[in-house]
Design a protein around this nucleic acid. Structure first.
Lengths: 206, 206
DNA sequence: GTCTATAATTCGATAGAC
DNA sequence: GTCTATCGAATTATAGAC
């Protein structure tokens, strides 16, 4: 049985505020989100928001770190896993990105935006380029198993094929006039296809 | 010789304001851009901005329409040109996107954002899916010349490979710690490679 | 048309009662 | 901890002189 004193943490006022803040910040960005709206969404008072978090900036930083932390941690675990080979990682990455983004479709646009508007607020500990994944890629090139591609472009292709549809979703759904279900269905197909497309680009002989 | 009365239009106060507005809105988005900053950038007074354009919103709409108009017009001309074949269009599209974006690197992120925040303000006359380009693609599939891919996913791949690097640029440059020149050099390589990658995805036999 | 000055509003933050 | 009320700064918009 859980200790009584700790149970309410998740539904505590502090958590309600963070949850509301994450929702609004992620949807509308820092500048367009008003603290009053966060308070309203959380069902509490504006003063209380400042009681728990000293300022809008502080609250934003916390939301940002939590938003990114969980996300990038998963990517780092995949790219630095020494037990899986290069090709398997292509599948794992596509699967991870698409699956995670289907649950958090607004995160990419939010992150890209704030990287431009407030780069100093971005916790950038992670770097795909130094990963075991890239080492494996270089190894495959050396063995002549894949076509030589600039590592930066390889990374942008892999990440872009996975993430771009979510960045472009608001515009895409408006242009094509399709609903959420149809979009998700498309993404599920991409999840399977992206590794194949990446292999084709690298001219891998199966 | 040009009629004297029309010459100054481009350097008129109205144009200076629009130009300043386009620059700032595109760089920082609607909410984060202050009318005072626009006036300052244009070298005029705040009151004058409201004299020419009734409000911040009005000014924004005009900038948005001009930003998108010029851009999409070029795309539509390419995809609906009946003189070029499917494969040539892949090259023309990549070339157009990358070239145009190298001159306006902030536009994609701006557009994606405002498509989310103010979808009703987006002038969405264009639709890649009804284009001659897509007709040609379907034809190639029917002839068994290319692999069958969902048209939506084909479009997202083509657009994403071209545009995504610019959307992700702020984050990408921060992570990789590269300067503008290095980024541009990478993009120039992509301009050549994207058509090849697209063809590889479609398993086209050369 | 362009400016200075200021009104009107919005918004982040705080004081103080309970 | 939570609220009401309000301050102070920032920001959009306007009035009015030139």
């Amino acid at each position: 049985m859980l200790p009584k004193g700790k149970i309410k943490t998740d539904s505590s006022t502090e958590e309600k505020i963070k949850s509301a803040a994450r929702k609004l910040f992620t949807q509308k960005g820092f500048a367009a989100t008003k603290t009053r709206d966060i308070a309203k969404e959380a069902g509490i008072n504006l003063a209380l928001l400042n009681y728990y978090f000293r300022s809008k900036e502080k609250l934003f930083e916390i939301v940002m770190i939590e938003n990114l932390g969980h996300f990038f941690q998963g990517v780092m675990e995949i790219v630095n896993d020494e037990r899986t080979d290069f090709y398997k990682k292509l599948e794992l990455l596509a699967d991870f990105y698409i699956s995670r983004l289907l649950d958090n479709p607004d995160v990419p646009l939010f992150v890209m935006n704030e990287a431009r508007n407030n780069p100093e607020k971005l916790p950038m500990k992670f770097n795909l380029m130094d990963s075991f994944f890239m080492k494996q890629f270089m190894e495959e090139i050396k063995k002549g198993k894949v076509k030589k591609i600039d590592p930066s472009n390889l990374m942008m292709n892999m990440v872009g094929l996975s993430i771009f549809p979510f960045v472009a979703r608001p515009m895409f759904q408006r242009i094509r006039n399709i609903n959420d279900a149809a979009f998700e269905s498309l993404m599920l197909e991409r999840k399977k296809m992206i590794p194949e497309w990446m292999k084709a680009m690298l001219e891998i002989k199966k």
